[in-house]
């Protein structure tokens, strides 16, 4: 039995359906990445699963209960969300922001108990931001800030963490840094991680499971080796890619690619040349 599933899900904005009759099962204690071209509905799927936007039809089940009928606070005890570029915390200090991760566990006036303080401390330690505790979030660099938001999600102490493009706007080194942090959380703590990623090579390298989407449908699922294929690249991104094996990780990697239209044009030009 899987903890998080969606059945026949239909989601749309202003009556225009983005996702129609989509069903998906999220494997527990694994890293799942959702990939697909812009506008294919991957962020929409993540938002629907996490109740940020309502779905019109179908169901999202978390531990057997419909997420739409659960108390939002109970959902927040089971899954944490890191939205896309959530930077609006302007003047809050790192410590303050992370402490708000305890919100779903508090009641009444929300005084932090010792247990809460321990969790907050632990979350800041794991994400290596404990040194910035008293700095305000907007003083930090993009990579550090992303770690703070991840720490807040960790302070929520949920088994499931969902992230919408956690590496966007970060440089190569910081992208890797964030992904390794997530990998560590998955390996050491057994947290289920679901994220939307743009970079298919990073998705292949860090995920156990890939979901490839096109126009509101999941068209392929499986291990990176099964999903990251020439055929999938053509179907999902309309690109002609060359797949190799990463010499360091042994995972599949897209070495180079062309747009299919360009390639046709390229071939046509060749034909013209040879005709002359």
């Amino acid at each position: 039995m899987f903890r998080l599933t969606a059945n026949d899900l239909t989601v749309g904005y202003d009556k225009v359906p983005i996702i129609q009759n989509l069903s998906v099962t999220i494997p527990d204690k694994q890293i799942t990445s959702i990939i697909g071209s812009n506008g294919c509905g991957k962020s929409t799927l993540l938002k629907a699963i996490t109740r940020i936007i309502p779905y019109e039809d179908g169901s999202v089940l978390l531990d057997g209960s419909q997420i739409a009928t659960m108390k939002t606070k109970d959902v927040a005890k089971k899954m944490a969300i890191l939205p896309q570029s959530p930077d609006s915390a302007s003047g809050l200090t790192v410590g303050e922001l992370v402490s708000y991760g305890r919100f779903p566990h508090q009641s009444g006036l929300g005084r932090l108990k010792q247990a809460d303080i321990d969790v907050i401390h632990w979350a800041m330690e794991v994400t290596a931001i404990i040194g910035f505790k008293h700095r305000t979030v907007d003083e930090l660099s993009g990579g550090q800030r992303q770690r703070v938001w991840i720490a807040m999600a960790l302070a929520q102490e949920t088994d499931i963490i969902l992230l919408d493009e956690p590496t966007t706007y970060l440089d190569m080194a910081h992208q890797l840094d964030i992904l390794q942090l997530l990998e560590q959380l998955n390996k050491q703590e057994g947290r289920t991680i679901i994220m939307v990623l743009h970079d298919i090579n990073q998705a292949a390298r860090f995920s156990d499971h890939l979901l490839a989407m096109r126009s509101g449908q999941i068209i392929q699922t499986g291990s990176p080796g099964e999903v990251l294929t020439k055929e999938m690249l053509r179907n999902v991104y309309e690109i002609d890619g060359e797949i190799g094996t990463d010499p360091r990780t042994g995972k599949p990697i897209c070495i180079t690619y062309d747009l299919i239209k360009q390639k046709e044009q390229h071939n046509n030009e060749k034909k013209i040349h040879s005709a002359i």
């Binding site: 938002k47 996490t50 109740r51 940020i52 108390k71 939002t72 606070k73 109970d74 959902v75 927040a76 005890k77 944490a80 969300i81 890191l82 939205p83 959530p86 609006s88 708000y100 991760g101 919100f103 779903p104 999600a153 929520q156």
Partner: peptide, 8 residues
């Protein structure tokens, strides 16, 4: 989204 995610 953050507020919703925190269970508000």
């Amino acid at each position: 989204d953050v507020a919703t995610g925190l269970g508000q």
